[in-house]
Design a protein around this nucleic acid. Structure first.
Length: 645
RNA sequence: GCCACAAUAGCUCAGUCGGUAGAGCAUUUCAUUCGUAACGAAAAGGUCCGGGGUUCGAACCCCCGUUGUGGCUCCA
């Protein structure tokens, strides 16, 4: 007998060769129905794969990420099986489960697959799933695997096999389809009841743009039809929260092909919104001892040769601007740091001046690849809420912690509670990608890791994701359809101070080199506004929203009173407008509800006589009548409570 | 940059087989003066993304470009 230990540390005895599925059956039939995947001694395990020794076991259902993962991984194989039948000759790349569904990369090998084929593919997958064929795991030697896939012309699979270690190669087969795969998988395709092919895209083989581009077929499957329907509804809802749509509706920003791709135009309401965000940040930064500076939008090319940016990005940037004078070259500034280094250098610095925190809402220009541009989240001209902190090496951690405080304050004020943190370190196997000494990299990386530990921040660590000049801590937030965008960033930099020969005089009267911290809590105003719009579905917090209230006269007879109300509110620094269109009150309410104006103030004869307004809250309805001054105080207090927490 | 797809009125979109361009909303005018989610009537509104080609004839077919969308690659 073998002893199986469950997560709650209880144990049971089973015959050797018992499968996780059989173990589930021994507990309850319901569990046996729901179980999709397992781990055995921490290793991923098919629920139909025998266990031959004492083991700790975990069972996973649909609600567990591991359960969905197995379900979608098997679905990817089902997709491949369907494609193999419908498009003979296609060659297969890889087909993993992803966060929402799965994909399979294929070389069409002469076939053309378009969106018009989606329903055929879905139908074929359902047809195959209904055969309830077992998904069978098999061990295979490297030579046999190479022969088997080689005979079928599966060049991509052969490439993968050639890099695997003999003795650890497995295949999974269902029906006529066999795939090179590590698993784990469902015992059969039977549980796959609902299928949706979502999209087609190009994807380079092994993510290398120098290699073949394959066709990536994205799909998602569910154990119940109803779950698919709900998912599709959710996707539709998410599309309504797209910041590009909301930005247009709210008249915040626009693009023009005449101005150029990726160059946003901020409309009056959007510009005012941005200004409020800037004021909000300025106020906090002042509290933390930041000094505002202003620098030009261009800089001499030599500045970027000194900084190292020209060598790294010169070819992929907007090209130098030439002057009438021969030999002069200027670059649109792609970042603010070199300018700030020059500000630091403008006077001799003492240890008493440090930390020196130079802040600027600096507009920068980067030549992003055309295919990368996306609304306000990826643009070619944008404004960073940038600052550079120059400090002594022993001040790094303390400054780092203070920056984290600012970022947390902002995220809290704007209710970004689902952010993720990522520590990006150097790729230890590819050091030539980075500039700077090993020693400095160690110092900087440790400063970040220690600061996160001290704050209790649960950050993911990624190797090879660091900037070329230093490691960083990034804060990411998801958009409406689950794409991750980086917002805030903090980066430690030993290299620029070196390159710009920055110095300060220490208490020992010797010259020392400062360390630099780059930081931007919003990241860029553009991306931040975009993500904010998607998070709030355009219902911006009261203190940020363009129009806080709209006065709605019952008829044109009360337009004068409505204007007086708005003027009084404006006096109290409340953003109020008047809807004096010749429309019925129901129409005005509907339109302003759809425009997401937080408060509507209905005024007619009763209100005009008593200096009152009838208050209606967006999405909630009638809130009763009150004096203008009472409403003004109510709204002002509400705003104050949001930003002075 | 690469792959795939798209672009028609201010917005959302229809436009059959290649035969001289259509709706709703918004706008303007008229009528109405209204009490908490759409009153009515009329008018105006088009470089069918741009350029080239095929054709007696192109919004529609072909080529080039621009911009956008979904991915990939990239992201100082």
């Amino acid at each position: 007998m073998i002893t199986i230990t469950f997560p709650d540390k209880s144990t049971r005895q089973y015959e050797p060769g018992t499968t996780p599925l059989q173990i589930a059956e021994s507990i309850s039939t319901r569990l046996a129905q729901d179980i999709l995947a397992a781990t055995v001694n921490g290793a991923e395990w098919d629920i139909s794969r025998p266990i031959n020794e004492d083991a700790e076991i975990k069972l996973f259902k649909w609600d567990d990420a591991e359960g969905k993962h197995a379900f979608w991984h098997s679905s990817a194989h089902l997709l491949a099986e369907a494609l193999q039948e419908l498009f003979p000759g296609v060659k297969f790349g890889i087909g993993p489960a992803i966060e929402n569904g799965f994909y399979y990369d294929i070389d069409p090998n002469g076939n053309t697959i378009t969106a018009a084929d989606f329903s055929r593919i879905e139908a074929k997958m359902i047809e195959l799933a209904q055969k309830k064929e077992a998904i069978v795991r098999a061990d295979i030697s490297k030579d046999d695997a190479l022969k088997m896939f080689g005979d079928r012309g599966e060049e991509y699979k052969c490439e993968l096999i050639s890099e695997l270690e003999d003795g650890h190669i497995t295949t999974y087969t269902q029906g006529a389809f066999t795939d090179l795969c590590r698993g784990p998988h469902l015992p059969s395709t039977a549980p796959i009841k609902a299928v949706k092919i979502l999209s087609l895209a190009g994807a380079y083989w092994r993510g290398d743009e120098k290699r073949n581009q394959l066709v990536r077929v994205y799909g998602i499957t569910f154990p119940k039809k109803k779950m698919l329907d709900e998912y599709l509804v959710m996707l539709e809802e998410a599309k309504k929260r797209d910041h590009r749509k909301i930005g247009k509706e709210m008249e915040l920003f626009a693009f023009s092909a005449n101005v150029g791709a990726g160059l946003p135009l901020w409309l009056p309401k959007g510009a005012a919104l941005r200004d409020r965000l800037e004021q909000f940040l300025r106020k906090i930064q002042k509290r933390y001892g930041y000094l505002q500076v202003i620098t030009p939008h261009i800089g001499n090319k030599n500045l970027y040769v000194t900084s190292g940016h020209y060598a790294k990005y010169g070819k992929d940037s907007f090209q130098p601007i030439h002057t009438p004078e021969e030999g002069e070259e200027y670059l649109l500034k792609p970042m603010n740091c070199p300018h700030h280094c020059e500000i630091y250098r403008s006077a001799p610095r003492s240890y008493r001046d440090l930390p020196m925190r130079l802040a600027e809402f600096g507009t920068v220009y980067r030549y992003e690849q055309s295919g990368e541009l996306h609304g306000l989240t990826r643009v070619r001209g944008f404004t960073q809420d940038d600052a550079h902190i120059f400090c002594a090496p022993d001040q790094i951690k303390d400054e780092f912690l203070k920056v984290m405080d600012i970022i947390f304050y902002i995220f809290k004020a704007l209710k970004f509670d689902n952010f993720e943190a990522q520590i990006s370190l150097r790729d230890p196997n590819n050091k030539q990608k980075y500039i700077g000494s090993d020693e400095n990299w160690h110092l900087a990386e440790n400063a970040i890791i220690e600061a996160c530990a001290e704050k209790g921040l649960n950050a993911r660590t990624e190797l090879g994701e660091a900037a070329f000049y230093g490691p960083k801590l990034d804060f990411m937030v998801k958009d409406a359809i689950g794409r991750r965008w980086q917002l805030g960033t903090i980066q430690v930099d030993y290299n620029l101070p070196e390159r710009f020969q920055l110095e300060f005089t220490g208490s020992d009267n010797q010259k020392h080199r400062p360390v630099m911290i780059h930081r931007a809590p919003f990241g860029s105003l553009e991306r931040f506004v975009a993500v904010l719009l998607e998070h709030t579905a355009g219902k911006l917090p009261l203190w940020l929203v363009p129009d806080q209230c709209v006065v709605l006269p019952i008829s044109e007879k009360f337009n004068d009173y409505a204007r007086r109300v708005a003027a009084e509110l404006n006096e109290a620094d409340i953003r109020a407008i008047v809807d004096d269109r010749n429309e019925k009150i129901g129409k005005k309410i509907r339109d302003n509800e759809l425009k997401r104006v937080p408060y509507m103030l209905v005024v007619g004869e009763k209100e005009a006589q008593n200096d009152e307004v009838s208050v209606r809250k967006q999405g909630e309805g009638d809130k009763g009548t009150m004096k203008i001054t009472t409403f003004a105080k109510y709204l002002t207090d509400e705003v104050a409570s949001m930003i002075n927490q």
